[in-house]
Design a protein around this nucleic acid. Sequence first.
DNA 1: AATGAATGAGAGTTCATTCAT
DNA 2: GATGAATGAACTCTCATTCAT
Lengths: 208, 208, 208, 208
Amino acid sequence: MTRKDKKNSTAKEKRRIILNAAVRVFSQKGFHRCRISDIASEAGVAYGLVYHYFDNKEEILNSIFDENWGLLIKVIETVDEQTDRGLEDKLRDIVDFILDAYRLVPEVIQVVVMEIARSSKFLKKPQIDAFEKAFRKLAQILAHHQRAGELRTDLDPKLMAYMFFGSIELILTGYLLGTIEPASGEEYESIKKAITSICIQGLRAPAR
Amino acid sequence: MTRKDKKNSTAKEKRRIILNAAVRVFSQKGFHRCRISDIASEAGVAYGLVYHYFDNKEEILNSIFDENWGLLIKVIETVDEQTDRGLEDKLRDIVDFILDAYRLVPEVIQVVVMEIARSSKFLKKPQIDAFEKAFRKLAQILAHHQRAGELRTDLDPKLMAYMFFGSIELILTGYLLGTIEPASGEEYESIKKAITSICIQGLRAPAR
Amino acid sequence: MTRKDKKNSTAKEKRRIILNAAVRVFSQKGFHRCRISDIASEAGVAYGLVYHYFDNKEEILNSIFDENWGLLIKVIETVDEQTDRGLEDKLRDIVDFILDAYRLVPEVIQVVVMEIARSSKFLKKPQIDAFEKAFRKLAQILAHHQRAGELRTDLDPKLMAYMFFGSIELILTGYLLGTIEPASGEEYESIKKAITSICIQGLRAPAR
Amino acid sequence: MTRKDKKNSTAKEKRRIILNAAVRVFSQKGFHRCRISDIASEAGVAYGLVYHYFDNKEEILNSIFDENWGLLIKVIETVDEQTDRGLEDKLRDIVDFILDAYRLVPEVIQVVVMEIARSSKFLKKPQIDAFEKAFRKLAQILAHHQRAGELRTDLDPKLMAYMFFGSIELILTGYLLGTIEPASGEEYESIKKAITSICIQGLRAPAR
DNA sequence: AATGAATGAGAGTTCATTCAT
DNA sequence: GATGAATGAACTCTCATTCAT
């Protein structure tokens, strides 16, 4: 019987528990409106323990961002490497990833979108860089397809990238706010398709 | 010579001065990171005077939102009434209004977008309603053009509205963050055109 | 037509209006819980005007005390001069004065008793002196009757005076709190009699 | 050697230390005139610790009241149960308790009497109820002796109870104010006797 | 006399963070 | 690792008082 079995949490797992608790309370009350003790009691630990695993409150938020935004970047990079696939497939992969994540862990998406991306002006350097990296990567992909003649060339690829993510983000916000009614499983698929399709048809070079 | 001329500020003007100061400090440091005293000293008034004109910090933020978001709603409503104009013109008016506002008073836009719209989940009822109203109005316009056969009918107009505003918003964020290089006057015009064009071509019903 | 007729308030009357308003709000909310602006709006004047008639908040309270406590002292002095009357009559006059005052202007009594007499430790010198004067005067009267053989001599007259006022005061408090049910006009008379009687004869049932 | 011995204060003791410090500063400066920081520095603890043990300033005052008024109620209840003892003994027990408490901890008595009992109109419900309970209990005792023929029946027992406590209270106030000179140990005993005796027999000199 | 805008010290309260156990 | 008592800076909000008009 290993130590892991005896205790239901190793150091790493404890950190995870705290992080998950933080996601929940951040999403419920907002980062600034919640206290370390809220996180601790949600996690079921003493609040002093939070400081064993994280230097301070902001670091918790940054950890959530790093971890999840990192996944997005990884998806975009993977997509970028698949040079043989079409633009539509690529964008669709990204949309799928984000919307699936939203379905599975909406709180995570909320925190990342509402608490971090949106106060991006006040992020620390590493987070700003990571934030920007996703846009840059996508812009690269778009530029590639521009050069391949699949996309209109009168537009800055970066601008397109921002519009793409902006579209997705505000739709998620609509869901989060409840001003767009939450979609059923089937609808999700059609929304994914819709987002991609709107972007593509808008971006696609006009047929001759 | 009236009293108004003698003194450089009437009650209403003092309120304005404080509100403008608040916009500046909110945009510089963020709502949660700035203190009432920051606003007061930026406005050049005593601490307590801020409370003479506003009940509390949040009311200041709400006033900024109400005032400016109200303008947006008015623009959308005006556009809605112009039944004889084409969709492209209408969207262009909205884009123009937002981007021109950004050029003139970027701090206002930043505060409205980053500090309020983005933490919309935590707004008070009247603000949530106002927030939603803009989307609903635009969705109405889009639905109208859908029925007129100008827009593809396979999409929820609300979804389109969210994508439209989302595109604009994240582009503004890019500007605010400096990750999109701020455009010169001329470029502004081309960006306005681009946003409208992307949206229209993407949304337009396929040519038969 | 005199100025007094034109305007419904001379300086002295304005002062009176403010003072009366102060009594009402002090009695409702308590001295520490009410603001100058409460007094002003109760009086129907601008709050700056309060400072024309009074130096500060505390002076208002002191004025209320001085004025009313002065009446009590006057009554006691008058009683003291009536050397030919019996002790019972004298005490009864004092009791009458206080209880009648309570019937007529309970708010005044409340403020004097609860806000001033009771925080007597923190009064200014002139008020402490006036406060004490009433007790000293009554003690003098009691001492006189002690020497005349009407009162037991085993007790300090001052102690008796304190007990006398203390009895009255806490009964009033009971009324003010509503823990003693407010008496009707007739009952008032019997209470006056009871207080005097208890002081002189005590609680014991008369021996048969 | 237990932890309790090593450290000079457990959680409960710390609370006690703060409460005692609060009694001292309340009695010196008055509740409204003292700040939390006064309590903290008097207790020798950090500002924030006071809030670790008490929700707010008022709760501190209420705790002092509850604790000490509770003792008074207990004494009255004990006295009430001793059905075989005479009225004089019973009243004497209550007088003893209060005056002994005053000798031992005059600050406590001052705070309870001057800061709480006297602003009883503004107390919270539980405190008002407790306040009234003491009077009700004593009135019950008096009513019992009334029925037993030991007390005059022409008086409301509640009224008597108020007079009894009122007498004691204002005497204590006289001490607190220094307008009655603080008694020596021996005098205390005679004062206790005097109060009881006056209540029962009144002020009148015994008929010869 | 009258107004109420303006001032700013003051006080309660919160809470991130540290640290002894 | 774990706990939660202890710290104190920070910040909002209040309100008595002043003063220009």
